[in-house]
Every structure is written in structure tokens, then in C-alpha cells.
Amino acid sequence: MPQLTVGQALNQALREEMTRDDTVFIAGEGVGVSIHDNPMLPTAGLLRDFGPRRVRDTPVSEAAIAGLAVGAAEAGLKPVVEIMFNPFFTLASDMIVNHAAKLRYLSGGKSAFPLVVRIKSGAGFSAGCQHSHNLEAWTAHCPGLKVVMPATAADAKGLLKSAIRDPNPVVFFEDMMLYFAPGPVPEDEYLLPIGQADVKRPGRDVTVVTWSRMLGVAFKAAEQLAAEGIDLEIVDLRTLAPLDKETVLASVRKTGRLVVLHEATRTGGFAGEVAAVVMEEAFESLKAPLRRVTGPDIPVPASPPLERFYIPDAEQVITAVKDIM
């Protein structure tokens, strides 16, 4: 299987879907001509290869970008629009939250909005809290949206292709720190169903439910704990909405212990939802209280030592695991 980075895998997914379906088009800030000029980025080369009809650089106008997607989707096009950094989702949010998510319902099921909003996310590049702020829990809180947040190159490809073909609006979070992370990626028609979690590491003692870039942190913790004879099972959620309860519950029923790990802040974070589902449906399987490992309840600071303090690390996962062993 060819090795691709997450950025290249996303690029391949976009290319394949654009080639397959003329109704797919791309819009956003810098999706055509970019200040980065980097072949590893998801939209690299698309303007050159698909032309300005299909690849649209927009003004700095997030509300219009998201609205473009909503209107065009209703007309049967398949917009894939990009929000440059996660915090700017707030500017697009009226169109996504009040419109993409609700207009199908408001129409009594007559209209459909098959659009994808790609949101570049994550911390780790010292730009501070107006560039780094993971808001996936906000979007998962909105009925009518599917929310996808992949961690590996193969998942990124398979899920983006499915997102583009999905008849629902899909919010697709891409952690920018993963863009350069390589992994094996199946060629051609590789589609992964949205709404399926994946057991990335089977284990016996403690379930770690995580997603996106924190998958790597979970693996690091698992390696260190394995040396001490503690066997983690790692469940990569991949999709937050719809939530794959079955995979999470099956794992917790097996291990009896749960840690939920995400980079986003704690209060109101999606770990709370995972925890609630487990408490409601697998309480009797738990041998110990569950633990959350998350970013602290602060905006992401810019200075490197402060930012490192913000981002959850393997040490914190290990502490949480040992706490409940």
C-alpha cells in the first residue's frame, strides 16, 4: 500500500471525488493560490488540475463561504468548503448551525444539503487561541450535522470521500499537525462509513477513547504502559456524530475501565458525552470511575512552554490510567 501523509491522502480524496463527480467543487480562502505553496496540503494543485470553475478562491468572508455551500448544496451541487482555522468557524456558524443543519428539517425533509465544511484545527504551532481552538463539541451539539475528525491518512481519505458523497452536511475537522504524518493509504475507491469507530489497538485493561491527533498520544502512553504490563485498548472515535456507541460500549464492557482523551478544553468537551453514554449503558461493567484527559479550561496560549502545558500528553494519560487501575 502506498504511504501518504494525511495532507496527501486528503488531496487524493478531493481529486478522486472531483474526477468522479462534476458537481463537487472547492471553495475557501487560499484553496487555489495559497501563501503556503506546499505540495503536502490538502488543496495543493487542485486549481492547476481542475481549473477555476471547480476551485474557487474567495474573499475573506466566512459567512459567505458557508452560505455558498448551503445554497449550492440545495441546488444539488456538492460543495467542499474550507475554514482556514477552527476559531473562524464562529464566523461561518450561522450558515452551518442555523441553516445547513436545520433547513432540511424545516423543509419537512424536502431539501437536502450535501455539503462538506473542512476545518483546519489543532494546536501546536504557537499561534495562540485565535488560531487554535478545537470546537468539535460545539458542532456535535447541533442535530443535523455529521461530525468527522480522523487521525490517520487512510481514515482521512476514506472518510472525506464518504463525507463528500453523504447527503447530509458534514463538518470535517483536520488537525494541521497531522498533515505531514505518513501512513499507508489504500488506492482508488476507498470509502469508510461515517459513524464507525475503530479499535486501533486491542487491549485488555483500560479503554482509551480518543480521536484526531490525540490518537498518537494514546499510542505513546500505551507503549510505555505495556512495558509495565498494562494493556490499553485504544478506540479511535473518528466520527463524533453520529456516535458509534456500540464500539465504545463493547470495549468498556471488555476492559471495565475508561479514559477519554481529547485536545479540546474540558468543560462541555465531547469526553463528557462519551462518559455519559458509558454511564447510562455500561455502568455495571465499570470497575472504576472513568477519567477524562483533556486540555485545561483556558484559551490556547501562544508561548511554547504554555502551549505545551495546554496540550494533553502521554504522561497525563498514564497518570489517569494508573489512577483507575
Partner: peptide, 21 residues
């Protein structure tokens, strides 16, 4: 160190509310 270069705010000299958005 909370801001870095992108949102340098100095309310003490009449330069509050700097935003990179």
C-alpha cells in the same frame, strides 16, 4: 506570553482588543 505576535494588546497605552480574526 499568552499572545505572541498575533494579538499584541497594550491597553495601558490605548491599544486594547487587538485581534487576529
Amino acid at each position: 506570553g499568552k499572545s505572541g505576535t498575533l494579538h499584541l494588546a497594550l491597553p495601558e497605552i490605548g491599544a486594547p482588543c487587538t485581534s487576529t480574526v
